[in-house]
């Protein structure tokens, strides 16, 4: 059994009595524990709907989603699902509930009625995991965007989730904030947490081990970054090559021999140097 099993899921937003708009259509895939997946696709392709289906904010109109074998469709499972699947959203200013950092992180554990000692220890380790310990007693409103998103991640971590979903969590951040959040996501993934990163940033997609590309509510591509970027469906999914691959392509057009794999900047520089020597 996979950690996440999406089985022939269709989801329709109700428009009026008996009529819906299908945002996700007959979708099937599974994700194993510990994977780092980028979920990409055009605006309106169904990515965020899928994310909300995965933690039971929405339930499938047809089909079924199992998290650790537990169905999201049954009302009585909702707490079990939410405990396992944590989500961080786009806007850093919309997802804090308390004024002080540690109070905000404690909100979830308090809600599930944990003992005080346990709450304190969870808040400490969650802030530690996102490198925000020294900000524990600061006002959330005084933090940078990247720091706020790290606090939001800490709030999710305090619930000890098995799966972390980032729904365009870096899109409103500056480059430094973006790197901070990605670094934290990578470290958490190395500790065994499954990460699903919904993003429009192709460098972030290249950074994942697996990329799922959605198009018009369906899964158009499922593969490694290398496979996805080589796919003829890339533009149809609203996607482009990451900048470093655009450069590799421009060089290939000018007579350089470029490898087909996804090079990072360092590897690309190395390759160029080798050919200029």
């Amino acid at each position: 059994m996979s950690q996440i099993e999406v089985k022939e899921v269709t989801f329709a937003y109700p428009l009026r009595e008996g009529v819906g708009m299908r945002a996700v259509k007959n979708l099937s895939f599974s994700v194993e524990k510990g994977e780092f997946v980028a979920l990409v696709g055009m605006n309106g392709s169904g990515k965020s709907t899928l994310a909300k289906l995965l933690n039971g904010l929405y339930t499938p109109t047809e089909g079924e989603i199992l998290i650790d074998g537990i169905s999201t469709s049954k009302d009585e499972n909702v707490f079990e699902i939410r405990k396992r699947v944590g989500m961080v959203f786009q806007n850093p200013d919309n997802q804090t509930v308390a004024t002080i950092v540690e109070d905000d992180v404690a909100f979830g554990p308090e809600n599930i009625g944990l003992p005080r000692e346990e709450i304190i220890s969870r808040v400490r380790s969650a802030l530690d995991a996102v490198s925000m310990t020294e900000f524990a007693d600061r006002a959330v409103s005084k933090l940078s965007g990247g720091q706020k998103q790290r606090v939001a991640i800490a709030g999710v971590l305090a619930m000890r989730p098995e799966i972390l979903i980032l729904d365009e969590a870096t899109s409103m951040l500056d480059p430094i904030g973006r790197r901070e959040v990605l670094k934290v996501a990578k470290e958490l993934n190395e500790q065994g947490i499954t990460v699903i990163n919904i993003t429009h940033n192709m460098e972030e997609a290249a950074f994942a081990k697996r990329v799922l590309a959605m198009r018009k509510g369906r899964l158009a591509i499922d593969g490694t970054p290398k496979e996805v970027f080589a796919s003829g469906l890339l533009e149809a999914c609203g996607l482009k090559l990451p900048p470093v691959m655009q450069l590799a392509k421009a060089l290939a057009d000018r007579g350089f021999e470029m490898p087909s794999s996804v090079p990072d900047e360092e590897e690309l520089a190395e390759e160029i140097w080798r050919q200029l020597k």
Binding site: V40, G41, M42, N43, S45, Q90, E168, S171, M172, H200, M202, E235, G238, L239, K240
Partner: peptide, 8 residues
């Protein structure tokens, strides 16, 4: 901000 690569 927030647009897909082609939209950008």
């Amino acid at each position: 901000a927030g647009l897909d690569p082609i939209g950008r």
